[in-house]
Design a protein around this nucleic acid. Structure first.
Length: 563
RNA sequence: UGGGGGAUCGUCUAGUGGCAGGACGUCAGACUCUGGAUCUGACUACCUAGGUUCGAAUCCUAGUCCCCCAGCCA
């Protein structure tokens, strides 16, 4: 971890840092994660967090957490707290390096005065519309504002009065004086300050003048001594402006901005706007809805920080934009939970089975392995009795080819118990639905016994009728039916691709009694089904589980191929 | 259309003039008291056309396609 040369996952940014270190450019590497507190963190942020904090760790440097809170009209404390909790949950810390761009407002203001004095910034009094008209287009150069050549004294006076609150919103802005003819639109005298008579979540009403991102960000980086300012691709053509601001302000250091491609995940959306939209329009239940790619959603879904970090490590960092398959994220949570999650038995859709030759009233406590991947996890007792429930899917009256489960006349092993044979099927007279099975068991085949070696094709899970606990289980599918939710017919938007089956609440499930005290957040593998996590909605006597991800299911593939 | 970026297996990603590699995925098979896990094997890629070179994913030239930018958002 501390030796850059031995780093498993190299990428072009680490390479740049290595070169800079070799060249002796920096005493110590300082990065930063700079969220705007106007929304919750999602897995795309996790990529950036892992990158920034990861590089700092790797080079024995430090990563700052800095809130980019320059726009009081969209930011709230609720988010700054949530963001800190999420970063911590992901497994990263920032020591005492917690900062806010708003902490720098006074210094930023002084830098602006400095720019005015140098003739590098001026107060413009054009309206927003006029400014837009003056900006030109992608192909036509812009026109200079008639206020562009105001005297330093006049600019200083106006700027001070803007700060003092003498003008309404929009009356004036402070602009960088760069080049209205630049082919890079960002350099056509961008706004540095705008008037906003709005209360800020940290500075209250002290200011009515707020810096823009393009101005506050580079200077905040410089003030903090950031060596490598890592951001996403869309800021690439802001880099000349970033450099301009730092240089013209005569800031104490010159951070290097490096851009990488943001994460896109198939079958979901990542933009703050769409996420907010989904929440506000009620397509999901909130920011922590388990179907969302938000950190809070993934957490509730049962994802571990370790799995998310492993995912971020493996997707790599590059400049080409692409879409990572959801299957890769699922791979990492399966890998993590396979190693760590205790196994239990639970039946989603119970089918009653009476074992005719098993003594009525007898109960056996059978040994069950808690985690075959982890011998240290030990064993537990699972009660077995005459009436049990099995998974409805594990029985077919007319078994298709390669169906290794229960069917009339067929044998199957009950996990950790006996081999049983189906000898009778009870149906509902009216609907024809199978409501109960009759089986016989072979007492010689008890799990672990000398005769247990007899082979049967299939093993299925079960719960004892009298001992099982009722539960609600929430099954999730992808939020969208298309890998690219934006792939819609003309005139429709991404919500047209919402998956109507993204949530299925299954009630009447039965789980083994050892789950009685399961606390919210704890994760299990329900054997043969998948990984599940106790939902915060769960309560004693009212268990609620979320399915994090199903187990890989090769039978489902075979069956699908048969159709 | 001006500017800025980017194109390598289905997906993500290595590669910096010398055998195109890894991971996910998919398909087979082995094993298994989870149709899980594990193991084995297979699969499939350098945007195009020229050029330089003994040799090009890599260098050059000309194209093509994709993404970003015209907020007083970040």
């Amino acid at each position: 971890m501390t030796n850059p040369e031995s780093s498993a996952a190299g990428n072009f940014i680490r390479e740049i840092v290595v070169q800079d270190v070799k060249a002796g450019k920096h005493g110590r590497i300082v990065t930063r994660f700079p969220p705007e507190p106007n929304g919750y963190l999602h897995i795309g942020h996790a990529k950036s967090i892992c990158l920034n904090f990861g590089i700092a760790q790797e080079f024995r440097g430090i990563c700052h957490l800095r809130f980019d809170d320059t726009n009081p009209t969209r930011e709230e404390v609720e988010y700054v707290e949530a963001i800190q909790a999420d970063v911590r949950w992901l497994g990263f810390g920032w020591g005492d390096k917690l900062f806010y761009a708003s902490d720098y407002f006074e210094r930023l203001y002084q830098y602006a005065v400095h720019l005015i004095n140098k003739g590098k910034a001026y107060v413009d009094s054009l309206s927003a519309d006029e400014m837009r008209a003056h900006r030109g287009t992608l192909t036509e150069r812009g026109k200079e504002s008639l206020h562009r050549n105001r005297s330093v004294e006049e600019n200083l006076d106006l700027f001070a009065r803007m700060k003092a609150g003498e003008f309404p919103d929009g009356a004036h802005v402070l602009r960088a004086k760069i080049d209205m003819a630049s082919p890079n639109i960002n350099l056509r005298d961008p706004a540095l300050y705008r008037i906003r008579h709005a209360a800020h979540h940290r500075t209250g009403n002290r200011w009515c003048l707020y810096p823009t991102y393009d101005y506050a960000h580079p200077l905040s980086d410089a003030i903090e001594g950031i060596t490598h300012s890592i951001c996403t691709l869309e800021f690439e053509d802001h880099r000349p402006l970033y450099d301009w601001v730092v240089q013209q302000a005569d800031a104490p250091c010159r951070p290097r901005q490096i851009e990488f491609a943001r994460l896109n995940l198939s079958f979901t959306v990542m933009s703050k706007r769409k996420l907010l939209d989904l929440v506000e329009k009620g397509h999901v239940a909130g920011w922590n809805d388990p179907r969302l790619p938000t950190l809070k959603g993934l957490r509730r879904r049962g994802y571990t920080p370790e799995a998310i970090r492993a995912f971020c490590e493996h997707i790599g960092v590059a400049k080409r934009d692409g879409v990572v398959e959801m299957a890769l994220l699922e791979h990492f949570i399966r890998e993590d939970l396979n190693r760590r999650a205790p196994r239990v038995m639970g039946v989603l859709r119970p089918l009653k089975v009476v074992i005719d030759n098993y003594p009525d009233g007898q109960v056996e406590q059978l040994d069950a392995v808690n985690n075959p991947e982890d011998p240290g996890a030990g064993i537990r007792k699972v009660p077995f009795a005459r009436v049990i429930y099995i998974e409805r899917d594990d029985f077919r009256e007319v078994p298709p080819k390669k169906f290794f489960r229960l069917a009339p006349g067929q044998e199957v092993r009950l996990r950790y118990a006996y081999i049983i044979k189906c000898v009778g099927v009870v149906k509902d007279d009216r609907t024809g639905e199978v409501v109960e099975l009759h089986c016989t068991y072979d007492p010689e085949t008890r799990s672990g016994s000398s005769q247990a070696g007899r082979k049967v094709k299939g093993t299925i899970h079960w719960v004892s009728a009298t001992h099982a606990l009722p539960a609600e289980i929430r099954l999730y599918e992808s939020l969208f039916v298309k890998a690219d939710p934006d792939d819609v017919p003309e005139g429709q938007d991404y919500t047209a691709n919402l998956n109507p089956h993204s949530l299925e609440r299954v009630t009447g499930c039965l789980v083994e009694p050892s789950l009685a005290g399961a606390s919210p957040g704890s994760r299990y593998q329900f054997e043969r089904l998948g990984y599940f996590c106790v939902d915060p909605d769960s309560a004693p006597g009212k268990l609620v589980f979320n399915r994090t991800v199903p187990l890989r299911d090769s039978w489902a593939k075979i069956e699908k191929a048969q159709h």
